[in-house]
Design a protein around this nucleic acid. Sequence first.
DNA 1: CTCGTCACTTAGTATAGGACGG
DNA 2: CCGTCCTATACTAAGTGACGAG
Length: 656
Amino acid sequence: DKEHRHKDHKKDKEREKFKHSNSEHKEHSEKKHRDKDKERLKHSDSSSDKHRQKHKDRDKDKRREEKVCLWVVGMLLNENFFSLIGCVVLLFVMIRWEEERYTDGSKWRFLEHKGPVFAPPYEPLPGKVKFYYGGKPMKLSAPAEEVATFFAKMLDHEYTTKDIFRKNFFKDWRKEMTSEEKSVITDLNKCDFSEMSEYFKAQSEARKQMSKEEKQKIKEENERLLQEYGFCIMDNHKERIGNFRIEPPGLFRGRGDHPKMGMLKRRIRPEDIIINCSKDSKHPKPPPGTKWKEVRHDNKVTWLASWTENIQGSIKYIMLNPSSRIKGEKDWQKYETARRLKKCVDRIRAQYREDWKSKEMRIRQRAVALYFIDKLALRAGNEKEEGETADTVGCCSLRVEHIKLYPKLDDQEYVVEFDFLGKDSIRYYNKIPVEKRVFKNLQLFLENKQPEDDLFDRLNTSILNKHLQELMDGLTAKVFRTYNASITLQQQLKELTCSDDSIPAKILSYNRANRAVAILCNHQRAPPKTFEKSMQNLQNKIDEKQNQLSAARKQLKAAKADHKASHDDKSKKAVEMKRKAVQRIEEQLMKLQVQATDREENKQIALGTSKLNYLDPRISVAWCKKFGIPIEKIYNKTQREKFAWAIDMADKDYEF
DNA sequence: CTCGTCACTTAGTATAGGACGG
DNA sequence: CCGTCCTATACTAAGTGACGAG
């Protein structure tokens, strides 16, 4: 018990640090927000007024704090014994809470919100927009029409041509039809949605052409909705909600070769929604004439509302924004776990290398799989239900058909070729030389197996994670991804950054370090549709700059010659001017060239995912502080909000 | 040990909206 | 000021991993 408490105490202290930096930051941003509101209210204010206002605000805050302090002191000094008792009880409850919060798995003590925003109801098509079956116009019942519009809106998409998509869609569509419709519409190929499709195209065109005022009105309405439904109170903070809108109905588009693509994603009603909030909060009201499925008060979870989705039968949640305390703390914890792995990774590596020699097959498989997870940053690879999802794999679910062994390939020995579809059906393709022992083990694992058999037939994620748990508290397969990503960034930054580079050059280095991680984690993207064009545009700009530069250089030369001839002050000044101009253009050119390199290298690589989910933000913050890079160059507004804790916490010497 | 459930993180893409250059 | 282009954001699918029942 003593030991336990000691550990907890240490944890608490660290948490205290986190909370402090986080709330401090929040105060800043809240204040900014308030100031902005005021700006909106009286936009005629002069800037000095605003400035004064800011000061006033700060003073007010200070005074309020002082008042609270005085109140507490007053209570303590008060002769009124009962107030004193009250005060002590309050403190006791607070302390008790602080302890409880971390030992019993509670996530909050007070939670109040307004519930979700539902998708707008279906608006029937104007009569002139017709659906045709077998060339004849046909008026559809509202439910059938709605589902038809989902298809019509996707008509330009490739997947409306796919067999599975069409089959699934048609089956679900027929369920929405009246019996007469059902008897008439028996063949999707005879359906003509083109008028509907044209109508929606025209609608979106019209939306683009809307006047400023109309756009402004929509914007204001969105803002109102955000203000009303987009925030909740969790404990003592107003927190931004991540997704407060319920997903609208539509046709399901799974990624990759998904067996359920085209199925109807049904409309979610209040009767489907479970609300989660605290008992003592003002409960959200369901829309008039409706009821929630349930209102519960479970403070062991972080979600505010949930519903069961009809495609996979999984649960969807409404949760807080990444900037919230609850998400930030968890994020921070994740990186702390990865840092603990750093301390013992050598031991673990030695261990799995040793296990390659084990007498037991299951241990060898475990060790080789772990080697892949560590070296190649593969995902764990949980089993999936066949026929329910696209056929994708991770490490533990690799099959024989996903690897090829080459005892010799070109000038390398023991090469393993990986070729499989991972998460989101993104292809992982890699040829990698491995140690002889690993290679021999793989040959052993492949013996007497069919292509569709599991490579690691004695292993799954649960076995692997149980083993990892024994090696380090809190260790799971995904910690390796976090650890290797973060350590790679740190090491690459060290390697690539030159302190006397210009800021754009340093940022290129940062992006390259980021890119190394994205490649490691296989974070790909489809090349943007306009990639070639935008590259060309940039190249044109570069050419233009180059011309400017040679012109400026010529002028400088001329000015110099002029100065040599006349030796007067005026010509000297002219030389200086021209010299500066050349310098400025050189800088601009450099910047453009850097931008072009960056963009080219980024064609098929997505940096965002690793930045947001794998890279300890304190590494980036420290790097910025060390090299005098403004943090805004690395993190945009949202990212700064998410990583507020790190921005406050890390100094220039932070080591992951 | 298997299976299903649940909660939460990680993922790529479509598009809204804002910056920027003519 | 307006159209173009790019970035940020919204959206939601698809993973991971814990846990409990049988």
